[in-house]
Write a protein that binds this DNA or RNA. Structure first.
Lengths: 205, 205
DNA sequence: TTCTTCGTAATACGAACGTACCATAAAGAT
DNA sequence: ATCTTTATGGTACGTTCGTATTACGAAGAA
């Protein structure tokens, strides 16, 4: 046989080509020939490693979320050793905002997949559904721990605030993507709410 | 000539067929033949009233936003004559949540158009961009007036809160759409923040 | 060495899509 | 009554897409 190549590596290479071309022209517009050209391989090879376009798209989504998870992890370690809960939350949220090319692509494609999953049952059954829950649980835990440490408002509802922060981040991310909002504006809004949550003030007049 | 039909009426009829079929199968999957079949007319007629598919999509988007604006207006009048600012805001936000078939379709298609506009310059230049600004300004004004009337926390930043409420509503709407969240949960989160904003408590310990 | 299997290529096929073209009946205008 | 315009239908064209088919060189197995 020929050089016995690593299939997983090749699949990753092709999936990254998919992400690049989809980030440029939109997920709806990418064909198998585009992916092949972008990856520098023949159309037949894309078929060889992913038998069908559907499978290619699934794999691409998986690859996308994996890369994003790794990216958030890297951001977290970058804020220094043992960061406080607020810094941790801020890092997670800011990593989700489309401020550079990679996060822009991620946001665009993740949104595209989500919207697609509404009318595509096969996609709706894919694993990326549990990702939001994980983020929500993580933020809820961080806020709870901050409350126990006296760093955050003990009267705040941790889960509600976690949901709110993630929800605001997502929409404002899309607004940045379509050019309706500047990243600084989004950061200001998020910081506003972090200030509120991470204040030990008890509000009762 | 034949019966001299109202062009605008026909276009509306076809645009509504577009919205229906796109709401069912997704905007990316709708072709001119589908729209023609759904509207009960020939393919040629769709071409006759909209020369190109791009124009059909533009008109469909316009029709969609018009219908939604009317829907929100109807909801507003339904809350009774001269409602308070909070009831008004609540009506606007709840009307945006995809809780029935029409709002579900609106949310799905508006999101699809938005995502599409990121990679489609012609769509990005379309009018639907200013709609979010209008909602943001409306909510900001309502909060400001509530503050002046002593109904809302005078320390709140009206615009930031307006942005936040709309952002949360949008993301949670998508979550409902993809089946990740129940409408009641979204309403609870929104009410939580409305309670906070519409409390006259001064928070300083 | 011969045989089989794996990676890669080129190309063909059938379907679907947007668009263009041709046709025609009906209703005013002259 | 003829002519022109309008609304509508049918259908053909060219392209693109996902997928299938065929082919072939190279490397380990026998």
């Amino acid at each position: 046989m020929p050089k016995r190549v690593d299939h997983e590596e090749r699949r990753t290479q092709i999936a990254e080509a998919l992400v690049r071309v989809a980030g440029r022209r939109g997920l709806h517009a990418v064909g198998m020939r585009d992916v092949a050209a972008e990856a520098g391989v023949s159309l037949r090879l894309v078929q060889y490693y992913f038998q069908t376009k559907e499978r290619l798209l699934f794999y691409g989504l998986q690859h996308l979320t994996d890369r994003f998870t790794a990216r958030v992890g890297a951001r977290l370690s970058a804020v220094g050793p043992d960061p406080g809960p607020r810094a941790t939350i801020e890092a997670i949220l800011l990593a989700s905002l489309p401020t550079d090319e990679e996060s822009r692509t991620f946001h665009l494609l993740y949104s595209s997949y989500s919207i697609l999953s509404v009318t595509d049952d096969a996609l709706a059954a894919q694993p990326f559904i549990d990702n939001p829950d994980a983020a929500e649980n993580a933020l809820t835990g961080l806020i709870r721990r901050a409350q126990e440490s006296g760093l955050a408002d003990p009267d705040a509802d941790a889960r509600t605030e976690a949901i709110s922060l993630l929800a605001m981040t997502a929409t404002m991310g899309t607004s940045i993507l379509v050019g309706q909002r500047q990243p600084e504006s989004a950061v200001a809004v998020l910081d506003h709410h972090l200030d509120r949550i991470f204040s030990t003030a008890r509000a009762r007049p």
